[in-house]
Write a protein that binds this DNA or RNA. Structure first.
Lengths: 90, 90, 90, 90
DNA sequence: CATGAAAAAGAAGCGC
DNA sequence: GCGCTTCTTTTTCATG
């Protein structure tokens, strides 16, 4: 038994330092995310400067994302069927 | 002048290629963003696995973000004050 | 059972009347919201007419909102801590 | 001339108090706006609880708003035309 | 699954 | 009047 009562199974100081580490790692990642969002904005700004309609390009990006997802799902479905009839697709 | 409306001030073929380029650049950036989001999730998963409460860590991250935002806004306010005084608005 | 899909579990006529009621109630509320937005604009206009810098006042309002939010989040964090300790997470 | 140099045409203390008053009035209005937004959410929650699709009702509200606006604009246009031919619509 | 928070899209207001 | 920024609203995503 330690002198000081522990809260749970992590001792206070060690916990504090670990929490700090987790928080900082998350903050770093979120900062990177913001940077990328900024980059995306800049791409759109560039597109706009080149005479394109940003709204339309955004729609294109979204449409392609949906199509990619659809293809992914179709592939998954196909694989499920193939597995059901014990067919190797590859 | 052709009957068909042009997209921006670009001719059709050049436009197509430029649009494609913009779309692909955005898609690349968005993919990176998703990767980072995934990384963040993994950090939280690790924290949880180490015995920490994810909710608490998220709250800490958020509170620190608010503090940062507050500092940012305070600075902006000071600058606005300075500008207002210059303009004799007080 | 009719061919036509029902909206929710309500029969057609009753539904129509209920939907109308919901829509109208929302419209009334949104109208009130617009009125208040208008009032806010007028307050800013008055401030401007009295020789104040609107931008500064807006920044003050925002900063105070952030401060309120911060206090709110601090409280929420404390509650999360308390819950986490109960759950032996530290 | 007062003893203390004034910044602009508003003396410091009077300014401070006036600004405070403006800020508080705005805050009060914004608080009321939030209340109404909350009421709207509750109406939608009630609609949902009654078995309706919230998204659809929102679409209806928006459509009606557009139609109202359209009618308003048509009326304005009509009045402009009437004025142009010096015709009294009323 | 349903709730609540975060991101993205869209609308509005502002200054130039 | 137009473009730019700010604010609202919608949609999405994660957690319980």
């Amino acid at each position: 038994m330690t002198k000081k009562a522990e809260i749970g199974h992590n001792s206070d100081t060690a916990s504090a330092s670990k929490i700090k580490s987790f928080v900082e790692r998350v903050e770093k990642m979120e900062s990177e995310k913001r940077d990328i969002s900024q980059d995306i904005k800049e791409i759109y700004a560039e597109a706009k400067g080149t005479g394109f309609d940003v709204k339309t390009i955004k729609k294109l990006v979204k449409l392609r994302a949906i199509e990619t997802e659809k293809r992914r799902e179709e592939q998954a479905l196909l694989e499920t069927y193939a597995a059901a009839i014990q067919m190797d697709l590859f």
